[in-house]
Write a protein that binds this DNA or RNA. Structure first.
Lengths: 204, 204
DNA sequence: GTCTATAAGATGATAGAC
DNA sequence: GTCTATCATCTTATAGAC
Protein backbone atom coordinates (compact mmCIF):
# COMPACT_ATOMS: atom_id res chain seq x y z
CA UNK A 1 0.00 0.00 0.00
CA UNK A 2 1.32 3.34 -1.10
CA UNK A 3 1.36 5.80 1.78
CA UNK A 4 1.80 8.82 -0.48
CA UNK A 5 -1.83 9.03 -1.60
CA UNK A 6 -2.98 8.75 1.98
CA UNK A 7 -0.62 11.53 2.99
CA UNK A 8 -1.86 13.69 0.12
CA UNK A 9 -5.49 13.09 1.08
CA UNK A 10 -4.83 13.85 4.73
CA UNK A 11 -3.14 17.10 3.74
CA UNK A 12 -6.02 18.06 1.44
CA UNK A 13 -8.56 17.38 4.17
CA UNK A 14 -6.69 19.33 6.81
CA UNK A 15 -6.05 22.15 4.34
CA UNK A 16 -9.76 22.51 3.61
CA UNK A 17 -10.58 22.78 7.29
CA UNK A 18 -7.82 25.23 8.09
CA UNK A 19 -8.23 27.39 4.98
CA UNK A 20 -11.92 27.74 5.88
CA UNK A 21 -11.16 28.67 9.47
CA UNK A 22 -8.13 30.89 9.01
CA UNK A 23 -7.84 31.77 5.35
CA UNK A 24 -5.11 30.92 2.88
CA UNK A 25 -2.54 33.18 4.45
CA UNK A 26 -3.80 32.61 7.97
CA UNK A 27 -3.34 28.84 7.90
CA UNK A 28 0.36 28.11 8.18
CA UNK A 29 2.06 25.01 6.86
CA UNK A 30 2.97 24.19 10.42
CA UNK A 31 -0.64 24.14 11.62
CA UNK A 32 -1.65 22.32 8.47
CA UNK A 33 0.89 19.52 8.60
CA UNK A 34 0.41 19.11 12.34
CA UNK A 35 -3.37 18.75 11.89
CA UNK A 36 -2.84 16.25 9.07
CA UNK A 37 -0.35 14.30 11.16
CA UNK A 38 2.37 14.58 8.52
CA UNK A 39 5.76 16.18 8.43
CA UNK A 40 6.24 19.88 7.80
CA UNK A 41 8.16 19.19 4.62
CA UNK A 42 5.43 16.97 3.15
CA UNK A 43 3.45 19.81 1.56
CA UNK A 44 6.34 21.03 -0.51
CA UNK A 45 7.25 17.47 -1.39
CA UNK A 46 3.77 16.42 -2.55
CA UNK A 47 2.35 19.63 -3.99
CA UNK A 48 5.38 21.75 -4.82
CA UNK A 49 4.23 24.84 -2.93
CA UNK A 50 1.47 26.16 -0.73
CA UNK A 51 -0.19 27.81 -3.74
CA UNK A 52 -0.44 24.54 -5.69
CA UNK A 53 -2.01 22.95 -2.64
CA UNK A 54 -4.69 25.65 -2.64
CA UNK A 55 -5.43 24.86 -6.28
CA UNK A 56 -5.88 21.18 -5.52
CA UNK A 57 -8.24 21.92 -2.65
CA UNK A 58 -10.47 23.67 -5.18
CA UNK A 59 -10.18 21.04 -7.86
CA UNK A 60 -11.20 18.23 -5.55
CA UNK A 61 -14.67 19.74 -4.98
CA UNK A 62 -15.33 21.83 -8.08
CA UNK A 63 -14.54 19.18 -10.67
CA UNK A 64 -17.24 16.98 -9.16
CA UNK A 65 -19.73 19.82 -8.69
CA UNK A 66 -19.56 21.08 -12.24
CA UNK A 67 -19.67 17.63 -13.76
CA UNK A 68 -22.90 17.04 -11.84
CA UNK A 69 -24.34 20.34 -13.02
CA UNK A 70 -23.58 19.64 -16.66
CA UNK A 71 -24.91 16.09 -16.44
CA UNK A 72 -28.16 17.37 -14.94
CA UNK A 73 -28.42 20.07 -17.60
CA UNK A 74 -27.87 17.52 -20.36
CA UNK A 75 -30.73 15.44 -18.97
CA UNK A 76 -33.03 18.47 -18.94
CA UNK A 77 -32.14 19.24 -22.54
CA UNK A 78 -32.61 15.73 -23.88
CA UNK A 79 -35.98 15.51 -22.12
CA UNK A 80 -37.14 17.95 -24.78
CA UNK A 81 -39.42 20.82 -23.81
CA UNK A 82 -37.70 21.47 -20.47
CA UNK A 83 -39.24 23.74 -17.92
CA UNK A 84 -37.39 26.65 -16.37
CA UNK A 85 -37.74 24.97 -12.98
CA UNK A 86 -35.78 21.97 -14.22
CA UNK A 87 -32.91 24.00 -15.63
CA UNK A 88 -32.74 25.93 -12.36
CA UNK A 89 -32.77 22.66 -10.46
CA UNK A 90 -29.79 21.45 -12.48
CA UNK A 91 -27.99 24.67 -11.66
CA UNK A 92 -28.91 24.94 -7.99
CA UNK A 93 -29.24 21.39 -6.62
CA UNK A 94 -25.66 20.13 -7.06
CA UNK A 95 -24.35 23.37 -5.57
CA UNK A 96 -26.61 23.24 -2.54
CA UNK A 97 -26.01 19.54 -2.05
CA UNK A 98 -22.30 20.19 -1.93
CA UNK A 99 -22.77 23.05 0.50
CA UNK A 100 -24.80 20.84 2.84
CA UNK A 101 -22.33 17.96 2.88
CA UNK A 102 -20.34 17.35 6.02
CA UNK A 103 -17.18 18.99 4.77
CA UNK A 104 -19.04 20.87 2.06
CA UNK A 105 -19.97 23.77 4.29
CA UNK A 106 -16.33 24.11 5.13
CA UNK A 107 -15.50 24.21 1.46
CA UNK A 108 -18.11 26.92 0.92
CA UNK A 109 -16.21 29.07 3.35
CA UNK A 110 -13.02 28.37 1.44
CA UNK A 111 -14.79 29.49 -1.72
CA UNK A 112 -16.15 32.62 -0.04
CA UNK A 113 -12.64 33.47 1.02
CA UNK A 114 -11.37 33.03 -2.51
CA UNK A 115 -13.95 35.50 -3.81
CA UNK A 116 -13.27 37.97 -1.02
CA UNK A 117 -9.56 37.69 -1.70
CA UNK A 118 -10.30 39.06 -5.15
CA UNK A 119 -7.06 37.37 -6.13
CA UNK A 120 -6.74 37.55 -9.89
CA UNK A 121 -4.74 34.36 -10.32
CA UNK A 122 -7.35 32.40 -8.39
CA UNK A 123 -10.23 34.03 -10.23
CA UNK A 124 -8.53 33.26 -13.51
CA UNK A 125 -8.10 29.65 -12.44
CA UNK A 126 -11.81 29.38 -11.65
CA UNK A 127 -12.88 31.09 -14.87
CA UNK A 128 -10.55 28.99 -17.03
CA UNK A 129 -11.62 25.70 -15.51
CA UNK A 130 -15.31 26.24 -14.88
CA UNK A 131 -16.40 29.22 -16.97
CA UNK A 132 -17.89 27.00 -19.67
CA UNK A 133 -20.48 25.71 -17.19
CA UNK A 134 -21.91 29.19 -16.66
CA UNK A 135 -21.98 29.76 -20.42
CA UNK A 136 -23.95 26.57 -21.05
CA UNK A 137 -26.52 27.45 -18.42
CA UNK A 138 -26.84 31.00 -19.73
CA UNK A 139 -27.54 29.60 -23.20
CA UNK A 140 -30.24 27.31 -21.81
CA UNK A 141 -31.89 30.13 -19.84
CA UNK A 142 -31.86 32.26 -23.00
CA UNK A 143 -33.68 29.45 -24.82
CA UNK A 144 -36.31 29.16 -22.08
CA UNK A 145 -36.81 32.93 -21.73
CA UNK A 146 -36.83 34.12 -25.36
CA UNK A 147 -38.79 37.29 -24.58
CA UNK A 148 -35.92 38.76 -22.53
CA UNK A 149 -33.16 40.81 -24.11
CA UNK A 150 -29.63 39.51 -23.53
CA UNK A 151 -28.99 42.50 -21.32
CA UNK A 152 -32.06 41.85 -19.19
CA UNK A 153 -31.31 38.13 -18.98
CA UNK A 154 -27.75 38.71 -17.76
CA UNK A 155 -28.97 41.02 -15.01
CA UNK A 156 -31.49 38.50 -13.78
CA UNK A 157 -29.13 35.52 -13.89
CA UNK A 158 -26.64 37.60 -11.95
CA UNK A 159 -29.16 38.27 -9.21
CA UNK A 160 -30.18 34.59 -9.08
CA UNK A 161 -26.52 33.70 -8.73
CA UNK A 162 -26.29 36.15 -5.84
CA UNK A 163 -29.22 34.54 -4.05
CA UNK A 164 -27.76 31.07 -4.63
CA UNK A 165 -24.32 32.11 -3.43
CA UNK A 166 -25.84 33.59 -0.31
CA UNK A 167 -27.88 30.46 0.38
CA UNK A 168 -24.81 28.28 -0.10
CA UNK A 169 -22.64 30.41 2.12
CA UNK A 170 -24.79 29.91 5.19
CA UNK A 171 -24.40 33.58 6.08
CA UNK A 172 -28.15 34.14 6.02
CA UNK A 173 -30.41 34.28 9.02
CA UNK A 174 -32.27 31.09 8.11
CA UNK A 175 -31.08 28.27 10.32
CA UNK A 176 -32.22 24.67 10.21
CA UNK A 177 -34.61 23.93 13.06
CA UNK A 178 -34.09 20.93 15.28
CA UNK A 179 -37.27 19.20 14.16
CA UNK A 180 -36.28 19.39 10.49
CA UNK A 181 -33.84 16.83 9.13
CA UNK A 182 -30.74 17.89 7.26
CA UNK A 183 -32.09 16.48 4.00
CA UNK A 184 -35.50 18.08 4.43
CA UNK A 185 -33.92 21.45 5.14
CA UNK A 186 -31.78 21.22 2.02
CA UNK A 187 -34.82 20.32 -0.07
CA UNK A 188 -36.68 23.26 1.45
CA UNK A 189 -33.84 25.60 0.56
CA UNK A 190 -33.76 24.29 -3.00
CA UNK A 191 -37.51 24.72 -3.44
CA UNK A 192 -37.49 28.25 -1.98
CA UNK A 193 -34.60 29.20 -4.22
CA UNK A 194 -36.19 27.77 -7.35
CA UNK A 195 -39.53 29.49 -6.76
CA UNK A 196 -37.76 32.75 -5.94
CA UNK A 197 -35.59 32.46 -9.05
CA UNK A 198 -38.52 31.61 -11.32
CA UNK A 199 -40.37 34.68 -10.07
CA UNK A 200 -37.30 36.87 -10.52
CA UNK A 201 -36.51 35.53 -13.99
CA UNK A 202 -40.01 35.56 -15.47
CA UNK A 203 -41.59 38.75 -14.11
CA UNK A 204 -42.73 41.10 -16.89
CA UNK B 1 -4.08 72.83 13.64
CA UNK B 2 -3.97 69.46 15.26
CA UNK B 3 -2.07 66.92 13.21
CA UNK B 4 -3.44 63.91 15.11
CA UNK B 5 -6.83 63.80 13.38
CA UNK B 6 -5.13 64.06 10.03
CA UNK B 7 -2.81 61.19 10.91
CA UNK B 8 -5.76 59.11 12.09
CA UNK B 9 -7.65 59.81 8.87
CA UNK B 10 -4.67 58.96 6.72
CA UNK B 11 -4.28 55.67 8.57
CA UNK B 12 -7.98 54.85 8.18
CA UNK B 13 -7.85 55.58 4.45
CA UNK B 14 -4.75 53.52 3.85
CA UNK B 15 -6.13 50.70 6.02
CA UNK B 16 -9.30 50.49 3.94
CA UNK B 17 -7.31 50.19 0.73
CA UNK B 18 -4.88 47.63 2.06
CA UNK B 19 -7.43 45.53 3.97
CA UNK B 20 -9.44 45.32 0.74
CA UNK B 21 -6.43 44.31 -1.31
CA UNK B 22 -4.66 42.00 1.11
CA UNK B 23 -7.03 41.16 3.92
CA UNK B 24 -6.79 41.93 7.61
CA UNK B 25 -3.94 39.54 8.25
CA UNK B 26 -2.36 40.08 4.87
CA UNK B 27 -1.92 43.82 5.29
CA UNK B 28 0.93 44.41 7.69
CA UNK B 29 1.31 47.46 9.88
CA UNK B 30 4.49 48.22 8.00
CA UNK B 31 2.77 48.37 4.58
CA UNK B 32 -0.08 50.27 6.13
CA UNK B 33 1.93 52.97 7.88
CA UNK B 34 4.23 53.36 4.88
CA UNK B 35 1.23 53.87 2.57
CA UNK B 36 -0.27 56.39 4.98
CA UNK B 37 3.04 58.21 5.27
CA UNK B 38 3.12 57.87 9.04
CA UNK B 39 5.40 56.14 11.47
CA UNK B 40 5.12 52.43 12.21
CA UNK B 41 4.28 53.12 15.84
CA UNK B 42 1.40 55.48 14.99
CA UNK B 43 -1.23 52.73 14.68
CA UNK B 44 -0.66 51.46 18.18
CA UNK B 45 -0.47 55.02 19.49
CA UNK B 46 -3.73 56.21 17.92
CA UNK B 47 -5.86 53.06 17.89
CA UNK B 48 -4.35 50.83 20.55
CA UNK B 49 -3.99 47.77 18.36
CA UNK B 50 -4.49 46.51 14.83
CA UNK B 51 -7.83 44.98 15.82
CA UNK B 52 -9.22 48.29 17.10
CA UNK B 53 -8.16 49.87 13.83
CA UNK B 54 -10.19 47.28 11.90
CA UNK B 55 -13.24 48.16 13.99
CA UNK B 56 -12.87 51.87 13.19
CA UNK B 57 -12.58 51.14 9.46
CA UNK B 58 -16.01 49.51 9.67
CA UNK B 59 -17.60 52.19 11.83
CA UNK B 60 -16.61 55.00 9.52
CA UNK B 61 -18.75 53.60 6.67
CA UNK B 62 -21.47 51.60 8.37
CA UNK B 63 -22.62 54.26 10.82
CA UNK B 64 -23.42 56.53 7.88
CA UNK B 65 -24.98 53.77 5.75
CA UNK B 66 -27.39 52.54 8.37
CA UNK B 67 -28.41 56.03 9.45
CA UNK B 68 -29.36 56.69 5.82
CA UNK B 69 -31.33 53.47 5.60
CA UNK B 70 -33.31 54.18 8.74
CA UNK B 71 -33.98 57.78 7.71
CA UNK B 72 -35.29 56.57 4.33
CA UNK B 73 -37.45 53.92 6.02
CA UNK B 74 -38.89 56.49 8.41
CA UNK B 75 -39.91 58.65 5.45
CA UNK B 76 -41.62 55.70 3.78
CA UNK B 77 -43.53 54.96 6.97
CA UNK B 78 -44.68 58.47 7.64
CA UNK B 79 -45.85 58.82 4.04
CA UNK B 80 -48.63 56.44 5.08
CA UNK B 81 -49.69 53.62 2.76
CA UNK B 82 -46.16 52.87 1.53
CA UNK B 83 -45.54 50.61 -1.39
CA UNK B 84 -43.21 47.61 -1.24
CA UNK B 85 -41.02 49.28 -3.87
CA UNK B 86 -40.41 52.24 -1.58
CA UNK B 87 -39.42 50.12 1.41
CA UNK B 88 -37.05 48.14 -0.83
CA UNK B 89 -35.64 51.38 -2.17
CA UNK B 90 -34.88 52.54 1.38
CA UNK B 91 -33.13 49.23 2.02
CA UNK B 92 -31.23 48.96 -1.24
CA UNK B 93 -30.39 52.49 -2.40
CA UNK B 94 -28.09 53.63 0.43
CA UNK B 95 -26.22 50.33 0.25
CA UNK B 96 -25.71 50.49 -3.50
CA UNK B 97 -24.79 54.16 -3.38
CA UNK B 98 -22.09 53.38 -0.86
CA UNK B 99 -20.82 50.49 -2.96
CA UNK B 100 -20.56 52.75 -6.01
CA UNK B 101 -18.67 55.54 -4.27
CA UNK B 102 -15.04 56.05 -5.10
CA UNK B 103 -13.69 54.29 -2.04
CA UNK B 104 -16.98 52.51 -1.44
CA UNK B 105 -16.18 49.61 -3.72
CA UNK B 106 -13.00 49.13 -1.77
CA UNK B 107 -14.97 49.06 1.43
CA UNK B 108 -17.30 46.44 -0.07
CA UNK B 109 -14.32 44.20 -0.48
CA UNK B 110 -13.36 44.81 3.11
CA UNK B 111 -16.88 43.82 4.11
CA UNK B 112 -16.78 40.70 1.93
CA UNK B 113 -13.57 39.70 3.64
CA UNK B 114 -15.13 40.16 7.04
CA UNK B 115 -17.96 37.80 6.12
CA UNK B 116 -15.60 35.27 4.59
CA UNK B 117 -13.43 35.42 7.69
CA UNK B 118 -16.43 34.12 9.60
CA UNK B 119 -14.74 35.71 12.59
CA UNK B 120 -17.17 35.57 15.49
CA UNK B 121 -15.96 38.70 17.22
CA UNK B 122 -16.38 40.71 14.03
CA UNK B 123 -19.80 39.22 13.30
CA UNK B 124 -20.85 39.99 16.84
CA UNK B 125 -19.65 43.57 16.44
CA UNK B 126 -21.73 43.95 13.27
CA UNK B 127 -24.82 42.34 14.78
CA UNK B 128 -24.61 44.38 17.99
CA UNK B 129 -24.17 47.68 16.21
CA UNK B 130 -26.38 47.29 13.17
CA UNK B 131 -28.74 44.36 13.85
CA UNK B 132 -31.62 46.68 14.76
CA UNK B 133 -31.68 48.03 11.20
CA UNK B 134 -32.48 44.60 9.77
CA UNK B 135 -35.16 44.08 12.40
CA UNK B 136 -36.89 47.34 11.51
CA UNK B 137 -36.91 46.50 7.82
CA UNK B 138 -38.19 42.99 8.47
CA UNK B 139 -41.08 44.47 10.49
CA UNK B 140 -41.95 46.82 7.63
CA UNK B 141 -41.84 44.01 5.03
CA UNK B 142 -44.10 41.94 7.28
CA UNK B 143 -46.59 44.82 7.34
CA UNK B 144 -46.52 45.15 3.55
CA UNK B 145 -46.77 41.40 2.91
CA UNK B 146 -49.34 40.25 5.45
CA UNK B 147 -50.31 37.12 3.49
CA UNK B 148 -46.85 35.56 4.03
CA UNK B 149 -46.05 33.44 7.08
CA UNK B 150 -43.09 34.63 9.14
CA UNK B 151 -41.19 31.57 7.97
CA UNK B 152 -41.86 32.28 4.32
CA UNK B 153 -41.06 35.98 4.73
CA UNK B 154 -37.68 35.27 6.35
CA UNK B 155 -36.71 32.96 3.51
CA UNK B 156 -37.55 35.55 0.90
CA UNK B 157 -35.85 38.45 2.68
CA UNK B 158 -32.80 36.26 3.02
CA UNK B 159 -32.69 35.64 -0.72
CA UNK B 160 -33.20 39.34 -1.48
CA UNK B 161 -30.32 40.11 0.84
CA UNK B 162 -28.21 37.62 -1.08
CA UNK B 163 -28.99 39.29 -4.39
CA UNK B 164 -28.24 42.72 -2.91
CA UNK B 165 -25.00 41.56 -1.36
CA UNK B 166 -23.93 40.09 -4.68
CA UNK B 167 -24.80 43.28 -6.55
CA UNK B 168 -22.89 45.36 -4.03
CA UNK B 169 -19.85 43.14 -4.10
CA UNK B 170 -19.22 43.66 -7.79
CA UNK B 171 -18.47 39.96 -8.20
CA UNK B 172 -21.16 39.55 -10.82
CA UNK B 173 -20.68 39.46 -14.55
CA UNK B 174 -22.53 42.71 -15.15
CA UNK B 175 -20.06 45.49 -15.84
CA UNK B 176 -20.81 49.11 -16.53
CA UNK B 177 -20.51 49.91 -20.23
CA UNK B 178 -18.47 52.85 -21.41
CA UNK B 179 -21.47 54.71 -22.82
CA UNK B 180 -23.35 54.52 -19.51
CA UNK B 181 -22.48 57.01 -16.79
CA UNK B 182 -21.62 55.87 -13.29
CA UNK B 183 -24.81 57.37 -11.89
CA UNK B 184 -27.00 55.86 -14.62
CA UNK B 185 -25.49 52.43 -14.07
CA UNK B 186 -26.14 52.62 -10.35
CA UNK B 187 -29.73 53.66 -10.97
CA UNK B 188 -30.10 50.75 -13.41
CA UNK B 189 -28.77 48.33 -10.81
CA UNK B 190 -31.16 49.68 -8.18
CA UNK B 191 -34.16 49.37 -10.51
CA UNK B 192 -33.23 45.82 -11.59
CA UNK B 193 -32.77 44.81 -7.97
CA UNK B 194 -36.06 46.34 -6.84
CA UNK B 195 -38.07 44.71 -9.63
CA UNK B 196 -36.34 41.38 -9.01
CA UNK B 197 -36.98 41.66 -5.27
CA UNK B 198 -40.62 42.63 -5.70
CA UNK B 199 -41.16 39.59 -7.93
CA UNK B 200 -39.36 37.31 -5.47
CA UNK B 201 -41.19 38.68 -2.43
CA UNK B 202 -44.71 38.77 -3.83
CA UNK B 203 -44.99 35.62 -5.95
CA UNK B 204 -47.85 33.34 -4.79
C1' DG C 1 8.98 9.27 1.52
C1' DT C 2 9.89 11.06 5.96
C1' DC C 3 12.46 13.35 9.22
C1' DT C 4 15.34 17.23 11.85
C1' DA C 5 17.49 21.38 11.69
C1' DT C 6 17.97 25.66 10.06
C1' DA C 7 18.21 29.43 6.79
C1' DA C 8 16.29 33.92 5.67
C1' DG C 9 12.95 36.96 6.45
C1' DA C 10 8.42 39.22 8.03
C1' DT C 11 5.31 40.31 11.82
C1' DG C 12 2.84 42.97 15.94
C1' DA C 13 4.03 45.37 19.73
C1' DT C 14 6.75 48.32 22.78
C1' DA C 15 10.55 50.99 25.21
C1' DG C 16 12.65 55.15 25.34
C1' DA C 17 14.85 59.28 23.06
C1' DC C 18 13.37 63.63 21.19
C1' DG D 1 2.97 63.01 18.71
C1' DT D 2 6.65 61.09 16.31
C1' DC D 3 10.72 58.64 15.79
C1' DT D 4 14.34 54.57 15.86
C1' DA D 5 15.68 50.35 17.47
C1' DT D 6 14.66 46.08 19.00
C1' DC D 7 12.23 41.92 21.13
C1' DA D 8 10.03 37.68 20.72
C1' DT D 9 7.68 35.15 17.65
C1' DC D 10 6.07 33.67 13.59
C1' DT D 11 6.46 32.42 8.56
C1' DT D 12 7.80 29.50 3.98
C1' DA D 13 11.12 26.87 2.07
C1' DT D 14 15.12 23.84 1.74
C1' DA D 15 19.38 20.95 2.72
C1' DG D 16 20.80 16.70 4.02
C1' DA D 17 20.57 12.47 7.17
C1' DC D 18 18.03 8.21 7.36
Amino acid sequence: MNRSSSTKERILGAAEVLFAQRGFDGASLRQLTTAAGVNLAAVNYHFGSKEKLVEQVFRRRLDALNAQRLAALAKVREAGNGRLEDALDAFIRPALELSHEDSGSLFMRVLARAFAEHDDSLRQFLSENYGHVMRQFTAEFARLLPHLTKEELYWRIDLVTGALTHAMSGFGMIQRKQDVSEGAHREQTIQHLIRFAVAGLTHP
